[in-house]
Amino acid sequence: MTELPSDKQHAIRLEGEKAYPGECCGFLLGVFEATGPRHIVDILPMCNARETEAQHNRFLIAPVDFMRAERHARAAGLEIVGFYHSHPDHPALPSDYDREQALPFYCYIIVSVNKAKAEGLTGWSLSPDRAHFNQEF
């Protein structure tokens, strides 16, 4: 399970509103134990690397940004424990496309932004067989 402090939840909502009508995206940085919950300590916003005309329904974090984020996290004594992105004018539910692109272990947070106003926020993790997402919150 993942624990998301309310101030980080608020920060993700703001990121979603700032990026509207495009999708925002970024890293969830935190700590985890093999048998315990993941604690999200910070978020690291990223530029959506998709072309401008696709940003209303797609996001991409480039691999080079992943490597930089991993170095940033390690320097802070943290790890990448997941990612967040927004669904402009769509519910905070993972799409098939989200599932196809996902990896297990990580927490995937989705915030729904309707008409520039952040609404529902949900968190998911991929099942080990890649068949579905499990809702964490």
Binding site: C25, R50, N57, F59, L60, I61, P63, H85, H87, H90
Partner: peptide, 14 residues
């Protein structure tokens, strides 16, 4: 060799 994912997603509609 380092395995590095590109992280992607988005809504269903194209």
């Amino acid at each position: 060799l380092m395995l590095v994912p590109a992280i992607a997603g988005g809504t269903r509609a194209l």
